[in-house]
């Protein structure tokens, strides 16, 4: 499936842009958005920034929040449906640190 991901770094990028990553369906069957981001980071683009430096992966710490198809969600809990296109953005109103990482709330 195709995943569109928000990219931005203040001071370098004039404005935000989107990258589209093609992730094989079998790699993310029954998966979460965090699994997809890990797949992209490990196999396609290691420069992608998304919250994972101190993450529980089971909806406990609540720190991996981002916007999935326009709605706030935890990356580690948001499920992927390969039939529905996926657009990922940082949560609004907190300021962007880089790519999907927002200023800590």
């Amino acid at each position: 499936m195709e995943i569109r991901v928000f990219r931005y770094l203040a001071g370098r990028d004039k404005e935000p842009y989107y990258d589209t990553f093609r992730v094989p369906d079998e790699a993310i069957r029954e998966a979460t958005v965090m699994d997809a981001l890990n797949y992209i980071s490990e196999n396609i683009d290691p420069t992608l920034a998304y919250y994972r430096h101190s993450a529980c992966n089971h909806g406990i710490c609540g720190r991996c929040v981002l916007e999935v198809n326009g709605k706030p969600a935890l990356a580690c809990e948001a499920r992927i449906d390969s039939a529905i296109p996926l657009v990922l953005k940082p949560v609004p109103n907190r300021g962007v640190v880089r790519d999907l990482v927002a200023v800590p709330g």
Partner: peptide, 13 residues
Amino acid sequence: IKEKSRTYNLELL
């Protein structure tokens, strides 16, 4: 480490 920015750099981590 491809990303040259220090800002939330997972490769650096």
